[in-house]
Design a protein around this nucleic acid. Structure first.
Lengths: 199, 199
DNA sequence: GGTTAATATTGACGCTGTCAAGATATGTGA
DNA sequence: TCACATATCTTGACAGCGTCAATATTAACC
């Protein structure tokens, strides 16, 4: 049977759900993503997804988890480019972060938004992916302080919270379209870089 | 008749709805605020609110509007304290901003979150309150640059976007409970102040 | 006092997430 | 090969949501 519709067992519903959900998220946002429409899209009954994800929250967490994995890989790639100076790396890092958020606004919102972190509760698996991501950022900041790129007198944790908070804030301004739009990205990144690094 | 329940006409439903909605928002968050529960709380039928607000979005916008008005007044009060130095004022301003967000997390989320600005669309009245608030911030930044508190070589608009974006980002981290909690507020504010001001 | 406008009500519709019970296919051991 | 257990999927149902239409009640005004 090559006809997908006719089969009682889907075959790989778990992965299909994730893929379709990611699409719907990109196209219609978090609010536009309903389990029923999703099931319909994949060609399966309303409650079929419940055999693969505990509830809607679990599905969203799985998508966010992938988002973190992808970003983490991207960040590592930039910071491993040994040919660049610390400052150049940081500049690239900033630009990549904002770019990732601007290119995947709905995913970014899911990764860091209240839907998961406040309204519902993050999966353990998601926490295991998200927290190291921030921890990694702390280590980098410590390194940058040692190299004289960032002020050494500031507490590393606070400095990380503020610098990362800035990127987070700019990302949200862009995503929500308040007081900033994507044509300002490059200049905003440069301004942030100037403020955070001693030069 | 002093018995509110018995009256067909409520009397001041418009204001009562706003007050009750603010309470529900504080207690149960945006997701917990439904028009039906709200109507029930005020002791009125499900569709009564529709005679005072076009729809749910309009009600939310009205609440957010008040939030902006309140914050704007607070900010003005701080910046008008002529006895303080520019740096002291800015320090107080930062602390007040983060404090306001931390004390009214759900309101802050409503004011700046996607519910209004992305998912639905802001009322004209809300825009008229929100945009000047940012414009005011730009003027202040320009002033601070002139006074040598902030780097004069940066473009004022970009600098405002980044500095305000930082406050916004820190606020959201606190509110959503990611990578920061309220015990860090003072230190984070000081770190931000140090990064943004020349000293 | 009678008419008009403002205000509130009940009924209905389609959407949502999710639970319970039942149907169907797959895999395993005898 | 057959029976049985297990994984997978379906239909039915329920409560909650925002909101429209039609209707009822009260207040305001000439």
């Amino acid at each position: 049977m090559t006809l997908q519709k006719a089969r009682y067992h889907h075959g790989d519903l778990h992965q299909s759900l994730l893929n379709a959900a990611r699409e719907m998220l990109r196209e219609q946002g978090i609010e536009g993503l309903s389990l029923r429409k999703l099931a319909d899209r994949v060609g399966v009954s309303r409650t079929a997804p419940y055999h693969h994800f505990k509830d809607k929250n679990a599905l969203l967490c799985a998508i966010a988890e992938d988002g973190f994995r992808y970003w983490h890989a991207m960040a590592k790639e930039i910071l491993d480019q040994s040919a660049l100076s610390a400052r150049q790396k940081y500049a690239k890092f900033i630009r990549a972060y904002i770019g990732y958020a601007a290119d995947n606004p709905e995913l970014y919102d899911l990764m860091f938004g209240r839907t998961i972190w406040k309204q519902a509760s993050p999966t353990q698996a998601l926490k295991d992916e998200a927290y190291p991501s921030f921890q990694f950022q702390v280590e980098m900041t410590r390194e940058w302080q040692k190299q004289g790129l960032m002020p050494a007198e500031e507490d590393t944790l606070r400095l990380t919270q503020v610098t990362w908070g800035t990127l987070h804030g700019i990302a949200r301004l862009l995503i929500d379209g308040i007081y900033a739009d994507s044509s300002h990205i490059d200049e905003m990144c440069e301004t942030a870089l100037n403020l955070f690094t001693t030069h």
